[in-house]
Amino acid sequence: MTINLTDAYIERCDKETEDTIAQEQSSFLATPITYFKQHLNEFLYIESPTFEAVKIDAISLEVDDVFRTYMVLLGLKVQKKHTSTIKTFLEEHLHTTETKNYSAMFSGEDGLWELNIPIDFIEGFSESMTVHEALTLALQFIQKLIQTTEQNN
């Protein structure tokens, strides 16, 4: 899966206030992902029509303050009936001997899953990646999750 984010809306934001620090061009995605370990107070917010293919409207990327893992946060447009499949998929496909600091909660109000996924634990992740490469890896992971829910439907 190749993702084209040239038309994406991208913001760097302050974690504490959620205020926009700067609106970025797609060229920011070539930044090493380690940028977020050097700027722990920031997160990246991205909206793109490309995300519709994987049933999400926006994605955020940050470093978790406690575990120091790179996290993607997103809302996944999948029905609540897939609870078991989603949680099993996350347990089986996030690889680590450490605490699996992910969360998956269904929001009945919004009708979607609120997922927080440590991309450090996705097979193929490396701290030498760019932001774009890390997002691509995360979106491929979400695409596999969606395929699994569709197969188990």
Rank of each mutant, 00 (worst) to 15 (best):
T2V: 02
N4V: 01
N4H: 08
L5E: 04
A8E: 12
A8Y: 10
Y9T: 14
Y9P: 00
E11C: 14
E11P: 01
E11A: 08
T17W: 05
T17P: 09
T17S: 14
T17V: 00
E18A: 13
A22F: 09
E24I: 04
Q25H: 06
S26L: 01
S26R: 00
S26V: 11
S27K: 02
F28I: 00
L29S: 11
L29K: 07
A30G: 04
P32M: 05
I33W: 03
I33G: 02
T34N: 06
Y35K: 13
F36C: 11
F36E: 07
K37L: 08
K37Y: 09
Q38I: 01
L40V: 05
L40Q: 08
F43H: 11
I46R: 05
I46G: 12
I46V: 15
E47C: 07
P49W: 04
V54I: 15
I56V: 08
I59Q: 05
I59P: 03
S60L: 03
S60M: 12
S60C: 15
L61H: 10
L61F: 12
E62T: 05
V63L: 09
V63H: 08
V63S: 11
D65F: 03
F67L: 06
F67P: 00
F67N: 07
F67R: 05
T69A: 03
T69N: 15
M71A: 02
V72C: 05
L74E: 07
L76E: 02
L76D: 03
V78Q: 14
V78W: 00
Q79E: 14
K80T: 12
K80E: 15
K81G: 01
T83F: 10
S84G: 04
S84V: 09
T85K: 06
T85V: 15
I86E: 12
I86R: 12
K87F: 06
K87D: 13
K87P: 11
T88S: 07
T88P: 03
L90M: 15
L90A: 14
L90V: 13
T96W: 02
T97Q: 09
E98S: 13
K100G: 06
Y102G: 01
S103H: 12
A104Y: 08
A104W: 03
G108A: 11
D110F: 13
W113Q: 12
E114A: 15
E114W: 13
N116W: 12
P118T: 04
D120R: 06
D120P: 04
I122T: 00
E123S: 13
E123K: 13
G124C: 02
F125Q: 00
F125S: 00
F125H: 04
S126M: 02
E127M: 06
E127R: 10
E127K: 08
T130I: 11
V131I: 15
H132C: 05
E133A: 10
A134R: 06
A134F: 05
L135N: 04
L135G: 06
T136W: 03
T136A: 08
A138I: 01
Q140A: 15
K144Q: 14
K144I: 00
L145S: 07
L145V: 11
Q147F: 04
T148K: 08
T148I: 01
Q151G: 02
Q151L: 09
